[in-house]
Design a binder for these strands. Sequence first.
DNA 1: TCTGTTAGCTAATGGCATTAGCCTTAGGGC
DNA 2: GCCCTAAGGCTAATGCCATTAGCTAACAGA
Lengths: 186, 186
Amino acid sequence: MARAALSPDAVVGLALRIVDEEGPDALTLAAVAGRAGVATPSLYKHVRNLAELRALVSERVMGELTEIASEAVLGRSGDEALRALMDGWRSYAARHPHRYSALIQAPRPETAEAGERLVGVILAALRAYGLEGSAAIHAVRCLRAAMHGFAVLESAGAFQLAEDLGESYALLAHMVVSGLRTPREP
Amino acid sequence: MARAALSPDAVVGLALRIVDEEGPDALTLAAVAGRAGVATPSLYKHVRNLAELRALVSERVMGELTEIASEAVLGRSGDEALRALMDGWRSYAARHPHRYSALIQAPRPETAEAGERLVGVILAALRAYGLEGSAAIHAVRCLRAAMHGFAVLESAGAFQLAEDLGESYALLAHMVVSGLRTPREP
DNA sequence: TCTGTTAGCTAATGGCATTAGCCTTAGGGC
DNA sequence: GCCCTAAGGCTAATGCCATTAGCTAACAGA
C-alpha cells in the first residue's frame, strides 16, 4: 500500500457528504476529488467510474435504511412492528432527503444483496399477519410502494399544503394495516 | 415568423421521443438538436435551457396523466372510480416507463398548474367517500404516494420476483379502499 | 538496501451546455 | 412588387466534466 488516507469507503463517505449538502446532482468525481484534496483522475484508483460510485452510495444508503428498519422491527410484532417500520423509514428519509433520493431502485449487482436484506426485514415486519408464499410477496411490494412513494414525494417537496404530514402518513399506515386485516374479494 | 418547422412544442415532442426510446438520461440538447436537424445552440431560440426543457417535458407528461386519470374517473364513482383511476395510472406508467420517470415531482412554476389539475382529478375520484377538508387532503396524499410508489418501483424494475404484478397492485388498491372505509383510531 | 506495487500526478481527448455575435430570410406594411 | 425588421438559424469560443494513458515517487516486504 502507499501513503493514502483515501480508500473506496472513504470516497463513498465524501460522496455521501456531497449528496447530503448539495444534492444528488452535485455528486461529481470532480467534487469528490476537491473534498479529498486530490486530482480527479486519482479517484479511479479507488472506484471504477462515476456510475459505480453512485451504485456504492446507493448501497450504503440501502444499508443504513436496512439497519433503521431492523431496529424498528426488533422486539415488536403485528401492527406495532409495521407502524414502527413505516415511521423509521419516513423519518430516515426526512432526516436525509438528498441521501434518500440518491437511492437507486433499479437492481444492480452492487445493490442486489443490500436490497434482498432490506426486503427480508420488511418481510419480518409482516410476519405476524400470517401471510404465506405469494401473499407475503404481494404485501411486501405494497408496503414498499407506500413507504417509498410517500418518502419520494415528501423529499421532493411535492406535498405543498399545510395539512400535517404526520397525519397523512398515519392514514397511509392505517390503509396498509386495514388492507392486511380486511379480507378481500366479495 | 421565419421558416421553421421548429417551435417550443415541437422541441418538447422530440425530447419526449428521445426519453421514450433512450431513457431520461439520454435527453440532452445535443440529442434533440440532432433529431431536429439543427445545430445545438439553435434550440436556445425555443427553450431557455436544458432545465426548462426538462420541466416542459414533465409538464407534458403530467398533462397526459391528468387526461388518463380524468377519463378513468369520468362516469364512475366510489370504489369503481378509485380502482379505474389506479389502473389507468399504472397502465400509463407501464406503457411509457421512461416517460413516467421523467416526471418531475418537485414543484416548479412550469408544472404547478398541471400538478394542481392532477390533484383535482384525484380529489374527484375520492368524492364519493364523503371526505371533508383536511381528511380529503390526507387521502389524496396517500393515494398519490401509493400509485406513484408502485409506478416508480415497477418502472425501475425493482419488483424482481415472478409473482403477478397485477395481483400486487390489486392488493394495494384494496388497502386504499379498506383504509378509507374502515374507521380509524381504536 | 533493493524492488515491486500502487496511489498519486499531469496531459490529453471528447462530450456536453451555454453565451456571443453574425447572417439570412420570411413576412407585414407601404 | 419592395423594404425593413425581427426571428430563427449558424459558427466560434468557453468552461465543466468524465475518462484514458502514461509517468513518478513512496511505501512494504525481502
